[in-house]
Simulated assay, not measured.
Amino acid sequence: MDLITIIVPVYNVERYIVECIESLLNQTYKNLEIILVDDGSTDKSGEICENYANTYSRVKVIHKKNEGLGFARNTGLAVAHGRFVTFVDSDDKAETDLIERLVKGIVDFKCDTCIGGFKRISENGRTNFVEQYDAALFTGTDVYNKLFARMLGSAPDKHDAIRMSVWNVMYSMDIIRKYKIEFPSEREFISEDIIWDSEYYKYSKRVKVIDSNAYNYRITPGSLTQKYKENMLKKICVLYSEMINRISDDKIKRLQRQFFVNLRVCLRQENSNISKKSSSEILNSIKEIVNNETVHTVATEYEKVIEQFKQKVFVKLVKNKKIYILYI
């Protein structure tokens, strides 16, 4: 039975961290190493982690200065002893068979990686969305050309994306160590996970996707769609520019579709309930968004290939700078 490492970055989550850790300690798969990386928490999170590490030999805690989620994961990877590793966010929780299912996917199909779906839960734990994938096996060049491509976003004419998040995925530490794969900072990119994926899946040779949704992803007041991100437009443009340089032309349309998914979130957060802005301030923010050079370039290119009506209308509104309609 292989040792599995679970890395949990922790930052100011005293309300949720106990439930998260308990869900990992109660896994049916027992050969686990749980690494809690306290990323400079200012609440009681670090103290809670320390108490668990002093009580359970399977739990280790590292305290470090605050540098963000990506670098906290790198800190855990540097000391991981498991043959495989998975990541759990500290405000989320796992069902008891999460690790067992991921390991079974790897062992039964002789894979280096296994991917599962998830449930989105509210702050109080109520399920409000389920993402479950059809079971599939990807081998050889299909891992990067077909599986990773779907992590960039859906094709223009259908919904076939696989979430690029690194939680509920089990990775090979041999691949990570051999190719020195690390996370960038999410303070630079809107998503550090897709950067990681763009490196890891170059070297993965055999990936099993399982029809499990044993990971519970919690939406909290600090989540992306619930909290105003002042520099969000800049981040999605930086990410787009970075990924364009990493992928081949056949994947660009997926990236462009995802760009507009992110842009829709960017616009939605201007809602006064989130941004706390006045109407005139919101209109100015929308004007800034539609006048952005990257936004206009992507809209011009992506409009040519869109087949779905709602997408086409949205992109046209952005491209033609229909500020008041977007505001409404």
Rank of each mutant, 00 (worst) to 15 (best):
F259R: 05
I195V: 12
K304D: 07
K322Q: 12
K235R: 15
Q256M: 08
S275H: 04
V59K: 02
E307M: 12
I62Q: 03
A94H: 01
R163L: 06
V305S: 04
E199C: 06
R120A: 10
F314W: 08
L24V: 05
D250Q: 13
G153C: 07
Y324W: 06
T28D: 10
V61Q: 03
T5I: 02
N54A: 03
R120S: 11
K110T: 11
I48T: 06
L239I: 11
G117Y: 01
T300K: 14
Y29V: 04
E47M: 06
Q311P: 09
H63E: 14
S185C: 12
T113W: 05
K304A: 13
V265F: 09
N31C: 04
L98Y: 01
F189H: 03
E67V: 07
D211N: 13
Y179T: 11
I274Q: 14
L102S: 00
D193K: 05
V79K: 02
D89H: 07
K178F: 02
L224C: 05
I7S: 09
S90F: 06
G40D: 05
N31M: 08
T86N: 08
R218F: 01
V143C: 09
K277S: 07
K205I: 00
N271I: 05
S241A: 12
V79T: 07
Y11D: 02
F260D: 02
L224F: 13
I7H: 03
R150E: 08
T127L: 03
K180Q: 12
L263A: 05
C114H: 12
D97R: 10
G125V: 04
S191N: 14
I176S: 14
L77I: 10
F260E: 13
V313Q: 09
S212C: 08
G125F: 06
